[in-house]
Amino acid sequence: MLEKVRNPNIDTSKKVIYIRGLRKAFDENVILKGVDLDLYKGENLVVLGRSGTGKSVLIKIISGLLSADTGEVNVLGQDVCCITRKELDALRLKIGFSFQNSALYDSMTVKENLEFPLVRHSKHMTEQERDKLIDTVLDAVGLRQSINQMPAELSGGQRKRIGIARTLILRPEIMLYDEPTAGLDPITCIEINNLINEVQERFNTSSIIITHDLTCARAVGDRVAMLLDGEFKREGTFDEVFDTNDKRVQAFYNYNFID
């Protein structure tokens, strides 16, 4: 299992995401019980945790899809809980969200999927410029040949790549990946892990990667944080997080690596 070499370009003096005391409940079920989190510029932060621990809820709150009950969620200097719809939309242009099931628009071709945000947010661009940009991001994910295919014609791994390409097309500063390797075969998982690292290097993004796949966590994470009981109980490098006697953390490790 390859461990990622820490990105030397991480700027620890600049926090792009700053979360304090985040709490979120659905009816009586408290999911996040006062989460504190920092994401530094240029950093890949992996958030680990079992299903239902609120990992996806966390990034949905960061992107403004869900609202926090209490706490501060500061993204690129703006508190997403307290900004207007217009400000939130402007902020969202700087955040790329890669969904677990890719969420490609299934009535549109790959090209139309990539054009969709561009047509709305880069109106000054000519059609030639748009086409060039589409080619660039498709090259970045290695799927230029799929430009005219429908999402239904793509494999799971290809859909993930196109989903990532669609988020990259607006050149986001922050990438949020929700279970990027879920449901993929081991080889495709490695390809997606490599792609996440390439995106970080090439586009200088800061990323939060939600996963329960420890191979992915080790391959892409500059830092790892483990969500337990609605809080980040373990945080550090991959080895630091799992160097503990906590039975729940050990069980998580063993589940991934021991049959």
Binding site: G64, L65, L93, F97, L104, P117, T167
Partner: peptide
């Protein structure tokens, strides 16, 4: 399939 959410997060 979260396509509506995808539209929303792309502003």
């Amino acid at each position: 399939t979260e396509q509506i959410d995808a539209m929303e997060v792309s502003a």
